[in-house]
Structures are given as C-alpha cells and as structure tokens.
C-alpha cells in the first residue's frame, strides 16, 4: 500500500496495529488517549485517531460505521485518478452489522477498490463466534456479492500480508473488492477491567496455555530465528529500541496538557 491508500482500522487495540504498521507515530495516539492537546485529535476524543497523510481519516465508536465510510473512500479512490485503494478492517462481532451487507453490496455493485479484512478472533465480547454467526467462515459472505472470499491463518503475519497484497493488486487493477478472513485470537479480556469470559465461564489457566501456543509474535520469531533472518542479538536490539521508543512516547504524552475549552467551538464547525 502507498501512504495515501485509505485504511479503516478494526476495533481491537483501537487501530494500533494498523497505525503502527502504516508508519504513524503511536505517541500521538497515546497522548490522545491521555486527553492531551498534543494528541492526534487534539485531546478531545479519548479513542479516536486520525492521520490523513497516512490514509487514516478517522475512527468511530459505533462498530460497523467503518463499512459505509470505507465505501466512501472507495468512491474517492475510484474517481480521483490517484489509483488509491482501501483496506477496511473489522472483527467477527462487527460483521454482524447490517451496514456490512449494505456496504458489501455497494462496493461490489460499483466495483470499488476495497479489501475487506475480517479479523476473526472468535469472540464478540463474551459471545463465541459459533453463537453469533451461522456458518464456519465469515469469508463465505463474499460469494453472495460476487467477490473473492479467502480464509487465512490470522496468526501467520506473512500469510495475511500475502493475501492482502494480492487483493490490493486486484483492487488497484479495477477488478473490485475482495474479502479476507483472518482466523485470529484474543489473549486477554474484551475490555480492560472486565472479566475474560466465554459465554458464562471465565477463561482458565489451561485456556491461556493453549492460546499462547498460537502467539503470532512468538510463532514469527521462531520462524525467523530458524530461517536465520533474525538473530538473538538483533532481537535484543529491537526490544531495546522499542523500550526507548515507549519511554519517549510516555514522556511526550505526560508532558502535554488538556486542551483549552475554546477548542470546543473551534472544532464544531469549519469556517
């Protein structure tokens, strides 16, 4: 993807994986989440983020909003001659929304350059996917709209990258949208402070042991070490660099101040 390609992030991590991977400095989002005027949205939003130069035009708190918004990005991409594409991400829970169907329909009908990426972590808060979706693969929804639908191992970052790359190329060539479903996991609670539960039952220690066998970081690390792409020394260097980045990001967020109340008027209407 290019810098100006559009991304609508999924809800988990409030889009951190997408922002970080597309080159946005996460310190602005940290400051935003700390209510500071130095944050990505000036500190008025808590959880929204925006970085138009990297194709992020905003986030929304009502799940399923991203589908229609992505259709709009797709229309712009198709019309403005800049050969842009859209990557629109959502979870298995969000796939329940009616806006998914309306937007899949519009995007397929108008052959919009959109790659729909379902990050299926198999849990919609406490509800397991088998209890909220009637068939095994959400990717099957694609066929009703004449799109390719593909399932990939969502714990294999390379498999995801390859599948999305192929769909992006297809979209950019004017061949329309596709759907990629990534089977992934959620290692922790839905929302910090809430119990980590499936249906009525809290997850157990054994559950976590099983889950960690599918840790995408560990799996990729082991693979790269085995391939000789990564060395123990390089791993430590990366960890150290990230520790420094985290310290700097926290210092940046902590140094900021809450916005001046006058921004309430400044932000409401454009001149």
């Amino acid at each position: 993807m290019n810098d100006d390609d559009f991304v609508f992030p999924a809800v988990r991590g409030h889009g951190l994986p997408h922002l970080i991977s597309k080159g946005v400095d996460p310190k602005y989002y940290l400051a935003e989440h700390c209510g500071k005027s130095t944050g990505s949205c000036g500190g008025v939003s808590t959880y929204h983020n925006i970085d138009t130069e990297h194709g992020f035009f905003g986030l929304a708190g009502t799940l399923g909003t991203g589908f229609p918004i992505s259709v709009g990005y797709g229309m712009t991409s198709k019309w403005n001659g800049k050969q842009q594409v859209v990557v629109s991400c959502f979870g298995d829970g969000t796939s329940n929304r009616g806006t998914l169907h309306e937007s899949f329909l519009m995007a397929a009908n108008w052959k919009l350059p959109i790659v729909w990426v379902c990050e299926n972590n198999q849990l919609s808060m406490y509800v397991p996917v088998k209890d909220h979706h009637p068939v095994e693969n959400i990717a099957d929804l694609a066929f009703g709209y004449g799109m390719p639908g593909e399932v990939v191992d969502g714990q294999d970052v390379v498999a995801v990258a390859k599948a999305v790359d192929k769909a992006v190329a297809r979209a950019r060539a004017g061949e329309g949208p596709s759907l990629i479903e990534c089977k992934t996991e959620r290692f922790v609670t839905h929302s910090i402070g809430l119990p980590d539960r499936i249906d009525l039952e809290d997850r157990t220690k054994d559950d976590y042991v099983e889950l960690k066998k599918r840790d995408p970081v560990v799996l990729f690390q082991e693979k790269l070490l085995k391939e000789g792409v990564l060395t123990q020394k390089e791993m430590e260097r990366i960890d150290q660099e990230i520790a420094v980045e985290i310290d700097a990001a926290e210092a940046f967020a902590d140094a900021g101040s809450p916005p001046d109340p006058s921004v309430l008027d400044d932000y409401l209407y454009a001149k």
């Binding site: 559009f6 035009f57 905003g58 909003t65 589908f67 229609p68 918004i69 992505s70 259709v71 709009g72 990005y73 797709g74 229309m75 712009t76 019309w79 403005n80 009616g98 806006t99 169907h101 309306e102 937007s103 329909l105 519009m106 009908n109």
Partner: peptide, 21 residues
C-alpha cells in the same frame, strides 16, 4: 442511483466529503 441502503450511502457520503468531494 444507489441501492436501497441508506446507511451505506449516507456513510459513504460522509467519507467522500472528507476526501475531496
């Protein structure tokens, strides 16, 4: 002419308006 899908085309219009139209 859109399909009968108000949520999709109204949301699409919001994004379209943000991105140059």
């Amino acid at each position: 002419d859109t399909p009968i899908c108000e949520a999709a085309f109204c949301g699409a219009a919001v994004a379209s308006a943000m991105t140059g139209y």
